[in-house]
């Protein structure tokens, strides 16, 4: 029984593509979409896609965060070696949910005089002179889609060492993400310390 092997089959995928486009373009979507858009324009443009772009979405899906590039080559190592404490700059870590990133004013209280001739310090001074703050980049941030409401103060009160989550800062210059703060990390510590494992402790 002869099996023919003509090239007619090429028609099929091409036809699929072409007709698919035709049907998609001709489907009533254009109308429906238009009313939807008008509504957005008139009332409130409450609606956007979930992510700004496909790449954004993919990055979010795999929980990949961009590596921050700091405007100033700040060195934690030197500051800590000089006997400063974490709370000297991150002033609100014991009282509030956020550790707090110091403003340019705080830097300049010391650096008005100390090491004022260094290049990086001059950069800071320049910021202050312009009336600008240092645009520090977040290092440890939860993606908004994971809905984590982390609160520093209770952890500090419970005696969790800063280094536990932030790595040994005496060896870091600009902060780097030393610990992958995924849920497994949080949960295992909470298990060890018999802290609450209730989802709503962190996610709300």
């Amino acid at each position: 029984m002869p099996f023919s092997s003509q090239r007619k089959w090429i028609v099929a995928p091409l036809g699929v593509g072409a007709l698919g486009l035709l049907i998609y373009a001709g489907s009533p979507q254009s109308g429906a979409q238009r009313t939807g858009e008008d509504a957005r324009a008139q009332v409130s443009p409450v609606f956007t896609p979930a992510h700004r772009g496909v790449l954004d979405a993919i990055r979010d899906f795999f929980n990949r965060q961009p590596v921050p590039v700091q405007p100033i080559a700040f060195t934690h190592k030197v500051h800590l070696a000089n006997g400063m404490q974490c709370t000297d700059c991150h002033t609100t870590v014991e009282t509030g949910p956020v550790a707090g990133i110091p403003s340019v004013e705080l830097c300049m209280t010391c650096h008005q005089t100390i090491a004022a001739d260094k290049l990086e310090i001059k950069k800071i001074a320049a910021y202050q002179a312009r009336g600008e703050d240092i645009p520090w980049q977040r290092v440890y941030a939860y993606s908004p889609t994971v809905h984590v409401k982390f609160n520093h103060a209770p952890h500090i009160r419970a005696g969790v060492d800063c280094a536990h989550c932030h790595g040994n800062m005496t060896q870091q210059t600009v902060a780097v993400r030393a610990v992958d703060l995924n849920m497994g990390y949080c949960v295992s510590c909470h298990r060890q310390k018999k802290a609450s494992l209730d989802c709503i402790t962190c996610h709300f």
Partner: peptide, 29 residues
């Protein structure tokens, strides 16, 4: 019973193209 496997009519391609187009539209939707 092997005839459908060996002989391909134009009708087949037309059917595949038509049905495929609807499927593609659904995926697009």
């Amino acid at each position: 019973l092997l005839r459908p496997l060996s002989r391909t009519s134009t009708k087949f391609y037309v059917a595949v193209a038509l049905l495929g187009a609807v499927v593609v539209a659904a995926f697009a939707a």
